[in-house]
Design a protein around this nucleic acid. Structure first.
Lengths: 239, 239
DNA sequence: GAGCTTCAGTGAATGCCGTTTACTACGAAT
DNA sequence: ATTCGTAGTAAACGGCATTCACTGAAGCTC
């Protein structure tokens, strides 16, 4: 498989990805056109069809790359914390997520914006889909570790809304694949929704009507979430 | 002002808006092109420049219309509740917001999606900007009414993050224009961020990795928010 | 090494798009 | 009745994704 042709091909795919990424960062998602990419590479647009079936497919590949990068960031942040310090890990991951999002708004929009673009027509067995799943796992794994090491308070199954139970059970069985009380899943989703919901509003500028810098509100949220998981909140380290 | 010409002109503007809206709903934001609108109206695209300075301006007008419609919806929901029932009002408005968002995902994306499109380059004194402000007021007014009628527990100014205080003060003075403890503003933002954050994730499909119907999670959120405002949560009425 | 195949890449074309320009036709105002 | 403002048009420009027929070179087979 290491034939010369294959290596050249892989190199070109990589160059396309990097070019697309550069355009995305510098000029925004709508500027990531086949022609622009080809122009930057000294090629013509139709040549890109040798590597990607369509503009959308290229974008989806880009989405996958970005998901992978983000996942890597989060793992890095987690590893920089002493293994036993679960509060530290959760805070580190959450803050790194927000930080990455604000530092890469174009990329964040592509990953988590409204799914109107061609980038969103993810299909089964999709590269981007896999990367997104791995990304989701990062948080889930952290929650599982926390639950295993030091169970946090949860509600019993019959305190969960009846309409919610089968959904949580399905997610647990099909995606998580670990035997857990439904309350753990519910708690995970509650936290994740607050976390990502807040970050999305911030990145998309929907808090600017009131706030120039939403970090204190984010910390306020963390200060509420973290104790609800039986952990202790610590303010961010000074820079 | 009531000249024949003006009336015809206003009618055409209205028809353009309606056509754009219809295309938005049926085929998504990227299909709302000048040519498509003109085609649907039996015109040619350049004619639309008699009414809007550019594609972006037309979209911004559309955004304004939709904001106004949404604001109207929320007011309607509020009026359907006995005037003294503050819990009822808050729940009604919140649920109606979510309901409208899920029933109008294309419109919601245009209003609250990632601000990449030409629709987002709002300028000062913009029509869309005004409508957005009025929309924001709907919730703020509800909060003010609640605070005046039955003050909810808030934190004192010195318990608020120092970096947050001037921002909250600025928002209070410049936008709200009412003398209030900063804690009220902070509480308002906390609630609003949770509310809109959750709805956005839901509408944009970012909860589908786990949930098919996120309503129970939304209700769970309301059941947490409402008591924090000194109100009592009531489950939604059966259909 | 000759001949055949595979494949990266091109150029031209199609049909979209926003926007500009020059032009026409008509209603209103003088 | 003439003038003027204006709604609308057609044609054009440049940009877009995509398709198709083609070229040329690298790789493989005998």
């Amino acid at each position: 498989m290491g034939t010369r042709r294959d290596r050249l091909r892989a190199a070109t795919v990589k160059e396309i990805s990097e070019t697309a990424r550069r355009i995305l960062v510098k000029e925004g998602p709508e500027a990531v056109t086949l022609r622009a990419i080809a122009r930057d590479m000294g090629m013509t647009a139709p040549a890109l069809y040798r590597y990607f079936g369509s503009h959308g497919e290229l974008l989806r590949h880009l989405v996958g790359d970005i998901f992978t990068e983000l996942t890597g960031e989060l793992h890095t942040a987690m590893k920089a914390v002493p293994p036993g310090d679960m509060s530290g890990k959760l805070l580190a991951v959450s803050r790194r997520f927000r930080h990455w999002a604000l530092a890469h708004p174009r990329e964040y929009a592509l990953l988590f914006g409204a799914p109107v673009r061609g980038a969103a027509d993810r299909e089964e067995g999709d590269f981007a889909e896999d990367c997104a799943r791995r990304f989701g796992w990062t948080f889930m794994a952290l929650f599982l570790e926390l639950w295993n090491k030091k169970p946090f308070p949860i509600v019993s199954d019959d305190e969960i809304a009846p309409a919610l139970r089968p959904q949580l059970a399905r997610y647990r069985d099909e995606v998580v694949g670990v035997d857990l009380p439904l309350g753990v899943i519910q708690q995970f989703l509650k936290c994740w929704i607050r976390l990502q919901g807040g970050v999305s509003l911030d990145v998309f500028g929907h808090l600017q009507f009131a706030l120039e810098d939403a970090e204190p509100m984010f910390e306020l949220m963390l200060a509420e979430i973290v104790p609800s998981l039986g952990l202790t909140y610590t303010p961010p380290a000074r820079d």
